[in-house]
Amino acid sequence: MTSTVLRAPASRPATGAPAWSARACSDSDYDDVLAFFSEPDFFFRTAEPDTRSEWEIRKLVGADTRLLLADDEPAGLYALEGFGGEHGCHYQLHLRLRAAAPNAWWHSAFEEIVRALTWKKELVRLAVQVGEFDGRGLAFARSLGLTEEGTLASVVRHGGQRYGYVFFARIWALTS
């Protein structure tokens, strides 16, 4: 099993990282959420963010998505989606920061999300899927050292072309 045991990160977030907080998306947050989706590469559960209408964005966000705030400023969205039976402890992470957020923020956001999840729950497999058209997402996933499990070819259209989805994952050593 090629798992790397995740060391608990230092208690104080790495220098340069903002103070993260998160909350469910309330109606008053929606101006910020809609602003995120007006960015052409805000690929949060969609390959065509900037032409989605308001009802569709509300459906994409749904109840399981949380608004991520950096130093109390809205910075992006994330959602953890359970896969298969609960006993499988397999989650898929959807994480997206707005264009202005520095790349380093993606790292510390990911670490904090994982720390919060594993605080209360067993995690065995955390998966991330990134469209081949999503340069920023690919850079983030590869920089994290996630295992690249392959590409499911030509399954999504973007800008009139066909692209695949690249599968990434991290496996945790079985503790229980």
Partner: peptide, 8 residues
């Protein structure tokens, strides 16, 4: 440029 519909 076409963009997604907003309530506004």
């Amino acid at each position: 440029m076409l963009r997604g519909y907003r309530a506004g």
